[in-house]
């Protein structure tokens, strides 16, 4: 699903709902402000909490850039990756972790929570999310192999594409 040679990463309704349940639970249990999931290429997968005043698209892109840069650093010193990053601010802090080497989990929290609590809850949620992304990966593979992929793009016409730019 998230391998570099696959043409697309696909998210389905069912898995999206399961993911949302897990991150909403994590938000409550860790007393954090915002949680979002990003793929390693910088695409926002899901988010919850106080996201309305946040530029989540930019956050997703910069998070992925951050993970990519620290991943590069890790390789230079002979590590596979740094699986957890933590940024401490005056009020808000960001905890970033990698789930199953594929997806990035970002937790933003303030003094109502603590690094210890966030780390503890993230660990449990990561396991649950890992299972869901495994399922998603299997599902995408099965659908691809069965040849029943109902991609919305199979039927697009040149006119559809031209209309985007009109």
């Amino acid at each position: 699903m998230l391998g570099s040679h696959q043409s697309s990463f696909v998210m389905y309704d069912e898995e999206f709902k399961r993911i949302s349940v897990v991150i909403e639970k994590l938000l409550r249990e860790s007393n954090s402000k915002v949680i979002f999931l990003v793929d390693k290429n910088g695409q926002l997968i899901a988010g919850c909490g106080e996201t309305e005043h946040l530029d989540t698209t930019s956050l997703a892109s910069l998070t992925a850039g951050n993970i990519a840069a620290t991943g590069g650093l890790a390789k230079l010193i002979g590590e596979k990756e740094f699986s957890i990053l933590f940024h401490e601010g005056e009020k808000d802090n960001i905890h970033i972790s990698i789930i199953g080497q594929r997806v990035i989990l970002v937790v933003i929290f303030d003094q109502r929570s603590s690094l210890g609590l966030v780390r503890l809850r993230v660990k449990k949620a990561s396991e649950e999310l890992g299972v869901i992304f495994d399922d998603l990966s299997k599902k995408a593979e099965e659908i691809e192999q069965s040849g029943n992929a109902e991609s919305p793009f199979a039927e697009i016409t040149d006119d559809d594409i031209d209309n985007l730019f009109s």
Partner: peptide
């Protein structure tokens, strides 16, 4: 790699 999200279309 494009990302197709059926949940948010």
């Amino acid at each position: 790699m494009s990302f197709i999200n059926y949940a948010s279309r």
